[in-house]
Design a protein around this nucleic acid. Sequence first.
DNA 1: AGGAGTTTGTGAACAGGAGAACAAAATCGC
DNA 2: GCGATTTTGTTCTCCTGTTCACAAACTCCT
Lengths: 237, 237
Amino acid sequence: MTHAPTQRMRTEARQGRGIPEATVARLPVYLRALTASSDRGVSVASSQDLATAAGVNSAKLRKDLSYLGSYGTRGVGYDVEYLRYQISRELGLTQDWAVVIVGIGNLGQALANYAGFSTRGFRIMALLDADPAREGERFGGHEIRRMTDLEDIVGAHGVSIGVITTPAAAAQGVADRLVAAGVTSILNFAPAVISVAPGIDVRKVDLSIELQILAYHEQRKGPATAGVTSPPGVESA
Amino acid sequence: MTHAPTQRMRTEARQGRGIPEATVARLPVYLRALTASSDRGVSVASSQDLATAAGVNSAKLRKDLSYLGSYGTRGVGYDVEYLRYQISRELGLTQDWAVVIVGIGNLGQALANYAGFSTRGFRIMALLDADPAREGERFGGHEIRRMTDLEDIVGAHGVSIGVITTPAAAAQGVADRLVAAGVTSILNFAPAVISVAPGIDVRKVDLSIELQILAYHEQRKGPATAGVTSPPGVESA
DNA sequence: AGGAGTTTGTGAACAGGAGAACAAAATCGC
DNA sequence: GCGATTTTGTTCTCCTGTTCACAAACTCCT
Ligand SMILES: NC(=O)c1ccc[n+]([C@@H]2O[C@H](COP(=O)([O-])OP(=O)(O)OC[C@H]3O[C@@H](n4cnc5c(N)ncnc54)[C@H](O)[C@@H]3O)[C@@H](O)[C@H]2O)c1
Ligand SMILES: NC(=O)c1ccc[n+]([C@@H]2O[C@H](COP(=O)([O-])OP(=O)(O)OC[C@H]3O[C@@H](n4cnc5c(N)ncnc54)[C@H](O)[C@@H]3O)[C@@H](O)[C@H]2O)c1
């Protein structure tokens, strides 16, 4: 999304090791399906099996996997462990990634407490918040540190990924500071468009947008039954 | 995404009131840009202004808006308030939508505390959790209620949107129950593929996937500088 | 060994979306 | 009133992504 599609990239994308963006976005889903299969003791799975588990078309799954190489066996399927390793490697998950979270409010705390990150190779190196009164509070085994420590932490641990969970008004400033400190990928939860230098990746997660998209489809499916039936106060059962 | 692309839908999409999916996903961003302009006292904005604020190409913005109708004035731009209303109406935000959140753990609590939902017309009607010990706890002015109340709540308030923030293993079951109760749109935060009947919309928000996509690009941009500085663990094959 | 049955990998057709470019329509200055 | 200027709405072209369909490759059984 933030990858400027230069001619060079586009050219070397197909011939070299490049993988279509849409495929990259699905590889983690396949990885999860493979992990689930592995946990159930399955050692070989067909594209059909995996596609069902991942919720996609089997032809699409096969084409996606073909970008990584020919890791399947015709007439048999894919070796679960082997494919799992290959996808992990392609996604860069055979190494750990250092992460900082900035803005430890409701959402930042939830993320800090979430175990699912570290199990996937994302190591939270620090929690940062602008409120000095919060310093020292602990979430998920991590301590809140003051914003002035940001540059040191990023430098010392080679932090490449920053997560922004501050209010929208602060997001651009925080992003600028993260990038200046050396972060090259940002996951932004604040409902704000942030602009960064070329070469820096930004992905956004926006819950309000997701709800609004649902509302659009909802409105179109049943105008008759749509809407809230009771007055907008507190619930009255 | 969950909309089965039947021929009928595809046909009536262009001629009637249908809007391309990619456009629908951007309308909330435009809406936010318009609200920001409005708050700054701006009453008219050009496609260029709005495109910059929304982080998109101006031609794309104009084309997106053209699906709603001809609401701009050539040589002038778009009336901020008028366009804001038109987008709101198209997205179905001129009415309120009733929402339930199921699974009030770290993430569910953060969502319950989040003020940004109600300000956009999404009314949280109930917080539900399987743990009976949690009943009665309050978050953001809402009380946790027991799962057995789900059907009554959905029925009584015409709840059409369900948010799932339970562990992955519980997600499918919760989804089934929400749909059976009458919910027709689901926002799923659990890292699980859930399958639903045709006509039910499911959108997923998956933080791990977002991080993994960032890791992929991160790995490719600087293999030299990538990685955590601590020992690598299992790598060299 | 050979044929039947499976399942992958990919070519080809198709659909959808992005962006450049420009004609049409409005305002403004004189 | 009229030309210069601005900005929209839309057409056209290109590119990415999806899906079908099938040959190639493998296993298993006799
Ligand atoms: N809570 C949710 O469920 C939710 C849902 C959707 C979107 N969001 C978005 O996520 C962001 C965080 O939401 P929240 O509910 O956690 O908000 P919050 O107000 O609870 O937390 C924000 C935190 O950021 C800190 N902060 C403020 N300015 C800062 C700065 N310049 N540098 C560092 N830290 C700073 C504050 O001290 C606070 O701790 C917001 O942008 C919000 O719109 C939240
Ligand atoms: N916390 C995060 O930041 C984060 C990040 C990414 C993904 N997730 C995902 O979001 C989901 C919730 O995460 P969390 O950290 O809030 O987990 P959590 O364990 O803190 O909360 C889960 C809640 O769901 C309730 N629950 C369990 N089974 C239920 C059922 N069948 N019906 C109703 N309620 C049930 C539990 O009582 C608990 O309160 C998980 O699937 C997690 O993978 C969370």
